[in-house]
């Protein structure tokens, strides 16, 4: 079981950050919201629609109003930056080429990469690839955008750019944003509301300010990046001395 009685409300127009240790199912949560996975029990509602009950055409109709930024960027490696951003527009609209060009350049301008429209994905740095993927995710002006670990593996400058972009785009386009991350400082700096999840449950929730003074030892350990605490440094194992002396290879 990945989640046990988990209950989250994502307010419209806000940035909600979901944080937790690696392997707690944060990405799984995004896939559940996007309808790529179905829960065994419980419900997931997006904009009044019960996601896991929708038929495939209805799910795809709802997804046109969602954007998702994958951890790897997930750009199509055989398409240029321009064609990647144009992809959802071409797939879902019948706009003339001149208008598609204008839209793509506008989206790329908003992430600061208009000058890179001719490049191929393998010519981009990790941070640039994520910004292009972000431009693609907002190509159809979605109401909801989900970010899967947007800061992972980024240098400080790229991280700063992404932090600024997430906040700016959310406010400028009036979107609802869900950010899944374990980069405490960056995520907390843009969050309107934070959920801390672990062991399939919501351990703490609140605004960044209230979570900073959270009473639980677990929240303190996570928010202050302490190496030991309720989340033990050691993986569960038999007694150390007994293990060394047992002589068992397997």
């Amino acid at each position: 079981m990945i989640f046990d009685g988990i209950d989250l409300d994502i307010p419209r127009g806000r940035i909600t950050v979901i944080m937790g240790p690696s392997g707690t199912g944060k990405t799984t949560l995004l896939r559940l919201i996007g309808g790529q996975l179905r829960p065994l029990t419980g419900t997931i509602d997006v904009a009044g629609e019960r996601v896991h009950k929708l038929s495939k055409p209805d799910l795809y109709r709802l997804r046109k109003q969602m954007g998702m930024l994958f951890q790897s960027g997930a750009l199509f490696s055989d398409l240029s930056v321009f064609e990647n951003v144009a992809f959802p527009i071409r797939e879902h609209t019948r706009l003339p080429e001149t208008l598609i060009r204008t839209l793509v350049l506008m989206k790329l301008e908003s992430v600061g990469l208009r000058g890179a429209w001719r490049l191929m994905p393998n010519q981009l740095s990790g941070g640039m690839a994520r910004r292009v993927a972000l431009a693609r995710a907002i190509a159809l002006d979605p109401m909801l955008i989900m970010y899967d670990e947007p800061f992972a593996g980024q240098d400080p400058i790229s991280m700063g750019v992404l932090v600024k972009l997430i906040r700016t785009l959310n406010d400028a386009l009036g979107m609802t944003s869900i950010v899944v991350s374990h980069d405490v400082q960056e995520a907390a700096s843009i969050a309107d509301y934070i959920y801390l999840i672990a062991d399939g449950r919501v351990m703490e929730q609140g605004t960044p300010e209230t979570l900073g003074q959270a009473p639980s030892a677990w929240a303190r350990q996570f928010m202050q990046a302490l190496p030991d605490g309720p989340v033990a440094f050691h993986y569960p194992a038999p007694d150390y001395a007994a293990d060394l002396l047992s002589g068992e290879v397997q």
């Binding site: 790529q36 109709r61 998702m68 997930a74 797939e91 693609r136």
Partner: peptide
């Protein structure tokens, strides 16, 4: 996965 999330089958 990204294609699915863009509502492209």
């Amino acid at each position: 996965s990204s294609m699915e999330m863009m509502a492209v089958d």
